[in-house]
Structures are given as structure tokens and as C-alpha cells.
Design a protein around this nucleic acid. Sequence first.
DNA 1: CTTGGCACTCCTCTACGAGGAGTGCCAGTC
DNA 2: GACTGGCACTCCTCGTAGAGGAGTGCCAAG
Lengths: 339, 339
Amino acid sequence: MLDDRKLEVLRAIVTDFVSSNEPVGSKALAERHSLGVSPATVRNDMAALEDDGYITHPHTSAGRIPTDKGYRLFVDRLSQVKPLSVAERRAIQTFLEGAVDLDDVVRRTVRLLAQLTHQVAVVQYPSLSRSSVRHLEIVHLAPNRLLLVLITDTGRVEQRLLELPAVLSEDDVSQLRHAFGLRLHGARLVDAPAALADLPDAAPVAIRPVLTSIMSVVLETLVEKPEERIALGGTANLTRHALDFPKTLRPVLESLEEQVVLLKLIGEANDPTTVHVKIGEENSVEGLRSTSVVTVGYGPEDGAYAGLGVLGPTRMDYAGNISSVRAVARYVGDLLAGG
Amino acid sequence: MLDDRKLEVLRAIVTDFVSSNEPVGSKALAERHSLGVSPATVRNDMAALEDDGYITHPHTSAGRIPTDKGYRLFVDRLSQVKPLSVAERRAIQTFLEGAVDLDDVVRRTVRLLAQLTHQVAVVQYPSLSRSSVRHLEIVHLAPNRLLLVLITDTGRVEQRLLELPAVLSEDDVSQLRHAFGLRLHGARLVDAPAALADLPDAAPVAIRPVLTSIMSVVLETLVEKPEERIALGGTANLTRHALDFPKTLRPVLESLEEQVVLLKLIGEANDPTTVHVKIGEENSVEGLRSTSVVTVGYGPEDGAYAGLGVLGPTRMDYAGNISSVRAVARYVGDLLAGG
DNA sequence: CTTGGCACTCCTCTACGAGGAGTGCCAGTC
DNA sequence: GACTGGCACTCCTCGTAGAGGAGTGCCAAG
């Protein structure tokens, strides 16, 4: 049903349409791509492709444009990797290596992605639950007030204020500090509950009640519902493709302001080896049905820290964006795992 | 030259144009506003206003629209305060009081401003230099590595990693902790240099070199060039006024992605009692020449923590936005000063 | 299966004229 | 001198109409 030439025609339609933003006709197609057949033949193939729902045309006498389904096929079967140039790779590396701390890494990554792809860039901070503890500091702010400062191996620093049910002495606090530090240092946050399980029994009876209350707060805020942070950039690029968003730019911008939506977007990107692509209607977020999202995880191969990606009109350079996203993710992952 | 009626005509033009986004003609003006004169008289006034540069018209047979200069006069002399309703005030208060920490306060404030004004909202985090120290914790991460954690009275938490030139003992560190804590607790960050001045002399000779190096890092990062953080929201509102940005939405979005630009925008807002309004060309940022910015400081009356404001098309509801911005600033200021 | 030919569709662009909103000016009135 | 009604004029907007053209679908022949 879909022989090689039809696939080739689809690929030609997608690439032409992506670069020109105009419906592409059979004549232009036959000329510009060396298909070796006449426009009439191309027209027959086009009719077949349209019957199968891969392309459509705005009106009877216009050229063809790909449907979401067409893009999907293009991405799955036709799009060949477009390796980045050496210069690009070097630029990515030097740009990222200039970062001074995690915030800076994320900021730079967002900027980099936006510039490379000319799309909206989304970068999730290393997920707490998938990080491990480099240091947990307990600061005795006031007799009944503690500040917990957690530093992860990825450089993320989180703090929580704790109101205590009872007054603690300085001695109690340093005992706490020692007990927590001993068990959590180097541990992954997902393993924290197990690592802390024996804590109440091992501690002096006097501070047990306080201890358990602290533990529950720690576990709840850091493990059960850790705060996910996400950085966004390059929204100005949406206007670059204003033609692709007839009247739909507003819902896109509105959606991007919702933290929940962003999380959903890169929620599946938990694997640094697989690039996910969501195309148009495949997207579960109402306002983003006219956009495509390319995401991937970053971090060590056996389990990413978090995800990053780009968002743009369905009419985007999938091959290029996939390469860029993958390349940036690799460098960021290496950087955070190495440093 | 500008008698009362001409001013009244200008006010009518501005308010009508703001609400309708259409050039306003003499007839409609005379009818809808009870000016007590005929359209012909209004036309004479309009001609005078135009001669003085307060209004203009797109083409010969169109109505008048205000110029930047016209808006300026409107804001300076004509715009009367538009008090918020009790319900609105209550909504602001309850919404803000639900915040759990500073990040949350800022996020909520951005959202609130954007929703109240239907414009882009900009909120600066309490400036470090204008805050005072609630607590400074020194964490001994490794023999030659310290983590400084600063908590300000406004709830802001900053941390800095420090590589030491020499190895420190746990004892040295607690001496440091004590020395810094003693001098800085409750001090404003701008006063930190003075508060720390006697520190090297008072300290044991053994740790003086390390001490001075720490001091210089502390002072540099926290006082001399403190990191300013800014939150942005409601960019989707720009599309609401798409008609006001013929082809200029891109530069606006691009400008708003520059941290420097945002700082510049609210840089002058360092007084909680004075609302600043920048109109169109008055704006020093190239890409924002088609927008107006309403800013004000928030915090205690004798010196704001930082600034906040909104940005939108020059054709905005100045009276309403000024009221909203002022009201929100007051509640946020009270909240942070009180809590 | 491929191809050239051809009729057909329907978008786009331009021109044109009617309609109308709004202005500027003038002469008259209070 | 300020205000007003009248009036000619400008120029935008909108609808209509037609030419031009890109592209298709189909058919019959290779």
C-alpha cells in the first residue's frame, strides 16, 4: 500500500512544507526532488497518501500539507538523524561549561536550546527523588524552629522551614544532625525512607517524638511530593512562526504558564537514550494541540535526572530538533554527572 | 492654552480609545460624554490638542488617538484614582496570605497582578542589599569546602559554595560561625562591611588568612553584586491586545526574556509610595517602545525591599492598573514585613 | 504502472465604486 | 471672541467583479 516512492513523496512534502510554509504541489515536487517520475505520477501517489490520511489540502486547487498522522510517519520512519557539526558541538560544550552553579546550568541550557532550535525550550531541574544526598544540614534557627538544607549530587539546594512541637537544645540538634547525616549521606532520596527506618529506635528516648515528626516532614516534602522546578525560555520564537498559529497563540502561551502543563510535557522524558515526540493532536494538553513537543531525559544512562525539550509548531524541523535536543541533553547530563 | 475643557476632551479621548481601541470622532465624543458643547466645538479643541502633540489621527478622515505625550498628560493630571472594591481587596489579601514561603509569595503576586490588570506582571524578589540578616549558617561540607546559607528577614534564602585556601577544623568552623553570627544577626546587608570590619583583628591569628578570604567572598557575592531575581507572568495577556502590536509582539517577548531588561524596568521602583509610569517612547528599552510600564516599590515605607509592576500596550487602563499595582504592593509589603 | 493532456475548481490579486465616518473651514449667531 | 450648523472634501472600508494562475482529478494512450 505504501511503497517506497510514496514514502519518498511524503518525506518531500514534509521537508518542503516545513521550509516554505506553503502547500506543495505535484509539479514543484517532481522538479525539486529527483523522484524520476512525472508530476502526474506524483499526483496519483498524493491521492493515495491523502486517502490514507497522511496529507490533506486546504482547498481543491491548493497543494498538499502533511497531517499530524503524516508528521508521525515522517518522524517514525523517514526522518534520518541530522548530526550536529563539530563547531556546534563545541559551542554547546563551551557554553555549558561556563556555568557556575546549577541555576546557571539550567538557564544556559534553556537559552542554548532556544537558540539552536528556534523553538520554545523547556528544562526541568534535576528531580529530587532521583538525586542522592550530598549533604543534609540542620540549622537551629530558634528553640523551636529548624531549617533543613539539602544539597544533592546534582547541585540542587533545597531548604525547608520546620516548626517544632517542642523545644530542642543545641545538643539535641547536633545529635539529630549526626543521625540524619550518617544515614542519608550518599543515599538516593528514593531510598531515604528505608535508610531512616531504624532511626527512631536508635535515638535517645527523649527526642523520639520530635524526631519522628521531623522525619515525616522530611520524607513528605523531599520524597513523597518533591517540588519540581522547570525553566522556560524562547517563547519569543513562537512569534517567528506566527503564521502557524492563526488565532491560537494565546492558548499556547497560557498553557506554558501552567507549571502542571510543563511537567506533563516532559513527564515522559525519563530516559536519556530515547527521544519522545508528541505531534499536534497527540498532545493531551488542550491548548497545545497545534504544537509538537520533542523531549528527552538527561543524566546518567541508567536513569535520568530529569527531562528537557523543545516545543514548537507541528510544522517544525523534527530531524534537526531531535538532534539538538539529544545533543544538549547528553552534554548537560555529562556535566552534572561529572561535576 | 489648555483650558479645562480641552483637558476634558483629552481625557474623554483617552478613556474612549482605551476601551474601544478605535479612533474616536468628535460626534461620538460630544454625545457620549456630557461636554455641553457641539461636535464642532470639540473639533476645534481637538485641532488645538493635535497642534500641541497630545493626539493624532491615523489618516485625514479618521478619529483621534492619543499620542504618548497625550497619555503622559492624562496620567499626570487627569487620571483620578480608581479605588478597588472591597471584594477585590479581600481577594488580594486572602490569596496572598495562602502563601507558604517567599517563592510562593512571589509566584502568587505575579499571578494576581496578571489577573487583576490583564497585563504582563513583573515582580522582583526582595533585594538582598536592602534586606537584613535573619540567620547566616556556615556548613562544613568538606575539610576545604564551606557552604554559606543566608536567610533574610524577607524569607529569602541564598547559598554560596566556598573553596577554601586551607583546611579548617570543625572547631575553626564553629568559631567562624559564632563570629559571623554575632556581628551579622539582624544587620542590614548594606551594613555588613561595617559590621564585619573588626572581625580579622578579633579573631585568633591562626585562622585570620582564611577568615579574610571568606569575608571578601561573602561581601562580594552578597553585598557588592547580589543576584537579583525576577519573576514574570501573564505574557499570554499580550496576545489579548494583539491589535496594539501590529508586528511588534516579537521584540516585546524577546525583551522580556532578558533579565537585564526586566531589572531596568523596575529599577526605579524603590519607593512604596510613588507609582512610576513609563509610557511608550519614554521607555529606554528598544523593543518596549510600544508598551507602557507601571511600577512601584513594595516593603516598609522607609525603603522598599524591591519593585513590582505591570507592562502592557500604551493603550492601557492607567487608572485601574495604577490602583491595582499600588494595592498589591501594599499587601505584599505588609505581608513580608509582618511575617 | 506511467504519462501527457485537458477541463475544472477555487484561491489570490487588483480594480472600481458606493457608502460613510470624520474632518476642516466658513459664515452666522449669541 | 467663543460657539454652532452647514457643507465640501478626504480617504478608509467593504463588497463586487473579473483576470490570472496554481493545482487537481481524470482519462486515454504508451
